[in-house]
Nucleic acid binder design. Structure first.
Lengths: 142, 142
DNA sequence: CTAAGTGCAAATCATTTGCAACCAG
DNA sequence: CTGGTTGCAAATGATTTGCACTTAG
């Protein structure tokens, strides 16, 4: 072997600071840069790929644009704001009993699960309610 | 108005035949072609986008490569084979009580949810078991 | 030395957009 | 005519790959 992997370590260090829950490649790259550790995009991709392989990171695919990544730790689910796209972690909402029921119903062996709840974060709920009170900006009826 | 939308109708017709549960753009395009209705990729994208807008289709983002789409009907969840990538529908595994519990715990308003279970389909489970029985192809201990 | 890690540029893949041609109402 | 629809080509954005260069062991 030769040359220890610098960038993967820096990526982990960055993500462990916890300034955010989930990261896009863009955010990881600029986070590294701010930390004085700039690295090429391709190198960051390779670093993340390696960290996924070692189960240090998890991929969080949400369907719009860029994939996000987060530290692999104890399992949790996600809530996502349909308005501002904020993402938050949530204690696991799916229980063993339901997984076993799903196994029985489907005939599959269930290994993992991913749950994404879509909804409104408190801020956006408030803003939406305020907008509804203001007829000028809200929808109007004919 | 002028010129009724031909391609969106053909896409719906194709997907309603039910030859598969979820479709990539690639599969939709080649499906149309096999049905004698070839259309340009950009047109298919536009058709799907419109059908999403009218809630006739749903997007199923799974994180690897191409997004999949399926007919919007009654809500269901998904199981996905980690080995062969097969995707199957599943009766909803998440119950109202859990959603309300998540709302209380998080302070968010939950509107929708998406659940993807990852596991082994019956075929792959069988094959994996067979491989484990055959030491030559399986992992060996030192 | 030697091989793994990195940077840079170019390639690939999925998806989107601009624009001119087209056509049913 | 008219405006929505389509095809084609080119743009975009995310991710991947080829390759030469660097460096710790």
């Amino acid at each position: 072997m030769a040359r220890p992997a610098r960038v993967p370590d820096q990526v982990l260090e960055l993500m462990r600071q916890g300034s955010r829950h989930a990261w896009t490649m863009e955010q990881i790259a600029s986070g590294l840069q701010e930390a004085g550790h700039q690295a090429d995009f391709s190198t960051v991709y390779r670093a993340v790929e390696r960290l996924l392989g070692s189960n240090s990171l998890e991929r969080v695919p949400l369907g719009d644009g860029a994939t996000q990544y987060e530290l692999a730790g104890q399992h949790h689910d996600h809530v996502r704001c349909v308005r501002c796209k904020a993402l938050a972690a949530l204690d696991c909402v799916l229980h063993e009993s339901e997984l076993r029921a799903a196994e029985r119903a489907s005939g599959w062996t269930i290994l993992e699960h991913r749950v994404v709840l879509d909804g409104l974060c408190p801020d956006c709920r408030e803003q939406a309610a305020a907008a509804a009170r203001r007829p000028s900006a809200g929808r109007r009826r004919p």
